[in-house]
Design a protein around this nucleic acid. Structure first.
Lengths: 186, 186
DNA sequence: GTCTATACGACGATAGAC
DNA sequence: GTCTATCGTCGTATAGAC
């Protein structure tokens, strides 16, 4: 009937194990190629518990595909060189951040994933950047800078277009940074 | 034993019906939400024939998700205003072109789809643009312009971020066109 | 050769017993 | 909270009729 303290503690341990397994497997193999049964096996629990605790594979994915490493810092620094700084700061992010970004983008078939992506973009890039911009259409220009940045990341991390992946990072920072700077300057 | 003319004609008609059904359903509902059985029903054909004729759902998707409406024209016009022209030309593309783009991007979980996207980018944007650019790193700058453009399209069509979708097209053309122009000018 | 019928193994998710 | 058994659906393969 009632859940005892022991029950609750066991449940929390199970939840944590499932979450850890999901965080690892989704980042490594993506949403589609990671099955609920894979996660259960990695967590050492019954497959039914994955759904029981997280309601659906999709919800576990969204809850799991996030990074503590805050991207907020990429909109800091002198405004006059922020374009380059944003590209450099993004390309220098952790390996996990790249994998999470890629996994999210490649799962954009799912509406709730798209919403999560949009929310993350606003929270980590658009809103803090818009606060720093002056001049006309600050909000819009911030959103377009975010779109630009995502364009580069998609080419580099999601599509992995060889024409761009083999270019030295410093060149990308200089060239693409100039393009961002135009919208930052307004 | 041997295939009669009647056999061959029947087979071609079946193939065409499956292709047409796939072209419609994939564009409308995406890769994931369109089942092989849906396509077979729409085509008035046995589900096994879909695989028999196209080897896999993924191959039918890639073969089907293309547009005759050539995007090549978006890299034409005076170089000094090509940035704006590219944005304008892209945003003015057919409704089918938008749906195909969205369907492809949302199916990027599949490696062969990513390859198809990269090939399309090179054939329709990067290569023809690189041919027109002069100065340093023409090939790279063309690839980065393509990345920028895809960034806008992803925000607009794939993620459908409201902060950008509700902005008037003319504003997007002016603002984002300026950013493209920087890399076009070099 | 085209097609029909049937089946396989894996999937996400659920009901109900403990 | 956990586990077993199972459901309906999926992409795909194939045997055999025409």
């Amino acid at each position: 009937m009632h859940s005892t303290p022991t029950d609750r503690r066991r449940g929390e341990a199970t939840r944590a194990a499932i979450r850890a397994a999901g965080a690892r497997l989704f980042a490594e193999h993506g949403f589609q190629d990671t099955s609920v049964r894979d996660i259960a096996r990695e967590a050492g629990v019954d497959p039914a518990l994955v759904i029981r605790h997280f309601r659906s594979k999709e919800r576990l994915f969204i809850e799991t595909m996030s990074v503590e490493d805050p991207a907020r810092s990429i909109v800091e620094g002198p405004l006059e060189q922020l374009g380059e700084a944003m590209v450099a700061g993004t390309l220098a992010r952790s390996d996990r951040a790249k994998k999470v970004y890629t996994a999210l983008m490649r799962a954009a078939d799912h509406e709730e994933v798209r919403d999560a992506i949009a929310r993350a973009n606003h929270a980590t890039v658009i809103a803090p950047l818009a606060r720093r911009l002056s001049g006309h259409d600050a909000q819009l220009r911030a959103a377009l800078v975010s779109a630009q940045l995502n364009g580069l990341l998609n080419t580099l991390w999601m599509i992995e277009d060889e024409a761009v992946t083999r270019v030295p990072t410093e060149v990308l920072i200089t060239e693409y940074g100039r393009a961002l700077q135009v919208l930052i300057d307004g």
